[in-house]
Amino acid sequence: MKLPPLEYACPASLSEAVALLAAGGGDARAIAGGQSLMPMLAFRVVAPTLLVDLRKPPELKEIRISADGVRLGAMVRWRDIEDDARLAAAHPLLKAAVEHVAHYQIRNRGTVGGSIAHADPAAEMPGICVTCDAEIAVIGSAGSRVIRADDFFVGALTTALEHDEIITEIRLPAWPANRRWGFREFSRRRGDFAMAAAALFYDQDAGGSAVNAHVGVIGLGDRSRRLPEVEAALNSQVIDEALIERAAEITSATVDAQEDIHASAAYRRSLAGTMVERALRSAAA
């Protein structure tokens, strides 16, 4: 399980990194923490001829929190999110979701940018991006652009990134004080990818009703998705036990689930409903 033959470069700046990726055509690939890419290289399911290490450009490592929201540099590690006490208030949903990412050692190297570039359908970070209407800032030979999360994730292990583009930042919109949220995940073992997870939030209006509900599911189908039918059922309603159960039923009825060696499709649909139910219950508590 040795890596295929390849070259390695560690440019000091983003512009150099973009130039290297562009020159490499489709055969060059960016490496961030490497926690998803290295296993794929070991199995030789990918065989780039050049790896462009992104660890040097300093602008990729920052967590910036402002009235506009949370900006995560692409090279921010899970560990950095765990350690940043500000995020408990600035984005509690992000913080809660990241607790479920992989294991201790992986968290010490794995990055948010690497995770969303990899786009595993059962990974937490893409799910958070989709649920929270995140924007993904990227830079490439053609310049910089910002991609809506919903457009960024195309399918399983597939994104809208061009081969010479690098993710620079994930922008999560501001988190208002009256927001209620929940995150629930079930995996076979601690740290495994989700069999199903639910990430959700809603804001409470003066009358105590839910507005702006965002409900996302992870680990079902080819990518994380929001569930508009569930959101519609929640908006303008007071979240009570009956509504929570109804939300679970709608989830199970509408999610696109697939069978694999770990779970049947029917089980996954039911599980997604239960995850939404439990996340909603904790949000409403």
């Binding site: 296993p39 199995f43 076979r188 073992r189 601690r190 740290g191 495994d192 990818f193 060696i261 770990h262």
Partner: peptide
């Protein structure tokens, strides 16, 4: 786990699941 063609579907430690310290 094998499929009907005799392909092993659990070809890594991400699929053949061993107990861990938290189980």
């Amino acid at each position: 786990v094998y499929d009907e063609q005799g392909q092993l579907l659990t070809g890594s430690l991400a699929d053949y699941l061993l107990p861990t310290a938290s189980d």
